[in-house]
Design a protein around this nucleic acid. Structure first.
Length: 369
RNA sequence: GGAGAGUUGGCUGAGCGGUCAAAAGCAGCAGACUGUAAAUCUGCCGGGCCACGCCCUACGGAGGUUCGAAUCCUCCACUCUCCA
């Protein structure tokens, strides 16, 4: 069996409805992938996660290689067995961490020299090493090792970084064995560079292509200038993944641009910080106005949180730092994202994505509760 | 009855002549979060303004010393500790 296959089922304008087949099940696209950095979607047990039923989640190479270490994960049967999860797993290559932990790393042609943020011990990560680690952990989809440039650096610097990412992409691809491997397009906010990057990366035999280097601090309009320009240039017959994005509105807009896959820490992190997504906008559950609100968080949601407890109770839990607050909030936010993607898929299938999008954006921008 | 310590903004608690509308923490109010070093971080938090400056009321109460007092003195009230 091949590592991965993608079937484009239907198109509604640029929006795509598809199906990715992996060794751990089929994934309906467009898809949102919850982030589980350290082999854990924060605050949820694997059982709770299974009930939410995402078809794929993320793990992170950088974090898992530092702790508990690849050798151990491999010895324990790979990430799936390790966390008791039998659906698909995609791992980020570690490129983004080496961007966000910039102060303790040194980039060279061969790879990146860095120190563990945990104990300061030295590491050297190469494209070959990253792919090998991801493969040994048994992931379904590995990401090429890339350099994610910061926002605000010069065109020349972004170009230089992009060319390095391209060379690393070739080396990553040469190391691919059993895990599927996605290439990553870079180029910052410069459309000429994005075009070149798409041409380079698309020409390589990756199983999918990602847009990386967005949502790194640039204004939202600039991000969508890049996405709207880049996505249509990506290969039609392979999955397109927009890395690290985003808000519910971003997902809808991303799909409109022709993106198939998304991941973002937003639903899980915001949940832990008391910021909840609902069908009528975002709410801060700690706000005083919810103290005696006996209604469900979102009456249109059928998740465990919305069907068993009130806003007043959720606020009480959050204000008192109860662990259950994070659990309930995360269950809801993930449900909200997964439900949103399901609605998007249905809209595409029925050729009504445009009206769905317009309706969704006008509804969420009003933010009336 | 005797000796000592103390009384500061919703709470705990710094300050011990001016730079004090008064540190810090908590509580309260609001916000941020986009390939997770995040159950994190930020702002506001006596009142009122024709607010990046001014005015009022404030450090138990009443007087006093001083150009100036939360800070020094006197008396009063209350609280705590120890000795009888």
């Amino acid at each position: 069996m091949s590592r991965l296959s993608f079937k484009l089922l239907h198109q509604d304008g640029p929006a795509r409805r598809g199906e990715i087949t992996t060794p751990h099940g089929v994934i309906q696209t467009p898809v949102f992938m919850p982030v589980g950095t350290r082999a854990s979607v924060k605050s949820l047990t694997t059982d709770q996660l299974q009930r939410l039923a995402p078809e794929i989640i993320l793990n992170n190479t950088y974090h898992l290689m530092l702790r508990p270490g690849v050798d151990l994960v491999e010895k324990l049967g790979g990430v799936h067995r390790f966390m008791g999860w039998d659906r698909a797993v995609l791992t980020d290559s570690g490129g983004f961490q080496l961007f966000s932990l910039a102060s303790i790393r040194k980039i060279r042609e061969e790879g990146v020299e860095f120190r563990s943020h945990i104990d300061g011990s030295p590491y050297f990560l190469t494209p070959e090493g990253s792919v090998e680690i991801q493969t040994r952990m048994g992931v379904d989809i590995a990401m090429a090792f890339d350099e994610c440039p910061s926002y605000g650096i010069s065109h020349a610097e972004v170009e230089k970084s992009m060319l390095l990412t391209h060379r690393w992409a070739r080396r990553s691809l040469a190391s691919r064995t059993t895990s599927a491997l996605f290439g990553i397009v870079q180029g910052g906010i410069h459309l000429d560079l994005r075009k070149r990057s798409v041409e380079e990366i698309s020409a390589m035999d990756f199983d999918g292509v990602a847009i990386g280097g967005v949502s790194v601090g640039e204004p939202k309009e600039e991000m969508f200038d890049v996405v709207n320009y880049t996505a249509p240039l990506l290969p039609v017959e392979r999955p397109r993944y927009l890395m690290g994005v985003g808000t519910p509105e971003d997902l809808v807009n991303g799909v409109a641009a022709g993106i198939d896959m998304f991941d973002c820490v937003m639903p899980t992190r915001n949940a832990r910080n008391g910021s909840l997504f609902t069908s009528f906008g975002k709410i801060h559950i700690k706000n005083a106005k919810y103290a005696a609100d006996d209604g469900p968080l979102d009456p249109h949601c059928s998740c465990v949180t919305c069907t068993t407890v009130s806003r007043a109770y959720l606020r009480h839990l959050f204000v008192n730092d109860e662990i259950a607050a994070s659990v309930y909030n995360t269950i809801h936010n993930i449900s909200f994202y997964l439900d949103l993607m399901k609605a998007i898929r249905q809209a595409i299938a029925s050729n009504s994505f445009n009206s769905f999008r317009e309706e969704f954006l006008s509804r969420s921008s009003s933010e009336k509760i």
